[in-house]
């Protein structure tokens, strides 16, 4: 896998903590490997929208990576419920179904971004940096640019 500069939290320099939500274990493992290659830490995983809400309350991650098509509760509904309770939540939808209605619906209900599967690590890396904004920093970036 490509080498990425570690993305840390600006406020304390700690790894960015992720909640990974997907009904596929395969997809969760793949995403976990990617975020770990970005210097992140998996705070928790969930296989459906209902568990995602519970896990968000329990772990308060910096970023949620959320699938859309899942059993029990779909990702867009779960995202809406999380954002309603926690407006600061940063949720990135990750789905193989990337048509405009889905994207617009997700963004209207509080998701910050959308990444289509199969996920390219370099795309997810850029999206994470964008979504974190000033709350994230690439380790060594300041000195590298100096």
């Amino acid at each position: 896998m490509e080498q990425f500069g570690a993305v840390k939290r600006s406020k304390d320099g700690q790894p960015v903590r992720y909640l990974i939500v997907d009904d596929s274990v395969f997809a969760r493992k793949n995403l976990a490997r990617m975020v770990e290659s970005f210097g992140g830490q998996v705070a928790s995983e969930a296989g459906d929208g209902l568990t995602a809400i519970t896990e968000y309350e329990r772990t308060h991650p910096d970023i949620v990576l959320m699938d859309i098509t899942m059993p029990q509760m779909e990702g867009i509904e779960a995202a809406e419920k999380i954002v309603r309770a926690h407006p600061e939540a940063r949720i990135v939808m990750v789905s193989s179904v990337g048509y405009q209605e889905n994207i617009v619906a997700a963004l209207q209900r509080g998701a910050r971004h959308f990444v289509q599967k199969p996920v390219k690590p370099e795309v997810l890396y850029e999206v994470i940096k964008y979504v974190l904004g000033e709350d994230g920093a690439v380790a060594g970036a300041a000195s590298a640019g100096a």
């Binding site: 596929s24 274990v25 493992k29 789905s95 193989s96």
Partner: peptide, 24 residues
């Protein structure tokens, strides 16, 4: 189980991408 999970997720990705194109 990962063997079966992999095939399911590949089917999901192929179908999702095809449906995205058909939606267009």
């Amino acid at each position: 189980d990962l063997v079966r999970e992999t095939v399911c997720e590949l089917a999901n990705q192929i179908t999702g991408n095809a449906v995205t194109a058909l939606n267009d």
